[in-house]
Design a protein around this nucleic acid. Structure first.
Lengths: 137, 137
DNA sequence: GGACAATAATTGTCTACCAAACTATTGTCA
DNA sequence: TGACAATAGTTTGGTAGACAATTATTGTCC
């Protein structure tokens, strides 16, 4: 999990950061559901790991897997009532941590600047990664 | 290890990021040696893990452990010739990755800004962590 | 329409790391 | 001086997450 800010937010729940991120993504999606492959892209985690996170969340009753009617390879992961409840209980903690870290340290325009700078570094890193993928293939 | 920039740099060696960081820290230290506890602080890793990383580096001949003459609890970890050689072989790769990510994406003054903003967020996060440590104790 | 590449998900296996418990030593203070 | 807290390091056990191989299905192209 890593000793990071999410420790603070997550410590107040029983779920790990990726599980909570999963709930957030589903709650923002149309019909509160997403295909597994889209979740991987949004969570920036490998398919193998996402599959396990879904397993766990499903056995906790937070989400359900359903066959995708349009593609028999795919699954649709949907938020349950319990999942929504868990998420709502969690949101205030995230806001509190954000409030007491980023928002106390930085002014609004500085936050925008930070996002811009990080995005640009990330973009050039992705470019480099893509290149080396192509080389190795 | 995490799919991050260090993948690129590390992929070109057989060592993991923490091992390489270890070599860097030792090479910057007086007499090319440091006590274990100081290494923990510099590497930002837990003592348990650092102990393991040193084990590994020692069995690869990159460093040696020596008893600290001033404190019989402590050890001094020192860089060997082989460790220095490994480090020198690695440095150009790090520089190349930095060059093709951060330095192509950001101008010098932007890099300074980025460091400043991140430092401030990190500081307030630390403050919050310290607080919650004190509360739980 | 059938071969074959590409895609969706899962499982097995491995690495990086943390936290807690433990041992040995050192500093402190009555 | 002797008790006791604090510090240095190691070991054990566990979690987050990646990668590779496998299965099932879909799209593509002759």
């Amino acid at each position: 999990m890593g000793r990071a800010i999410d420790v603070l937010a997550v410590a107040r729940t029983n779920y790990n950061p990726t599980t909570l991120d999963l709930l957030v993504r589903l709650s923002l999606a149309p019909h509160h559901e997403l295909r597994g492959v889209d979740l991987c892209r949004q969570l920036l985690k490998s398919p193998g790991y996402v599959s396990r996170v879904i397993d766990q969340a499903e056995s906790d009753g937070l989400v359900i897997r359903r066959a995708d009617p349009d593609d028999r390879r795919a699954q649709r992961i949907a938020l349950t009532e319990a999942g929504e409840t868990a998420l709502e209980a969690f949101v205030p903690h995230v806001l509190e941590v954000l409030d007491r870290t980023v928002y106390t340290a930085l002014k609004d325009d500085e936050i925008e600047t930070l996002i811009d700078l990080l995005t640009r570094v990330a973009d050039s890193a992705h470019q480099l990664l893509d290149e080396s993928d192509n080389v190795s293939t």
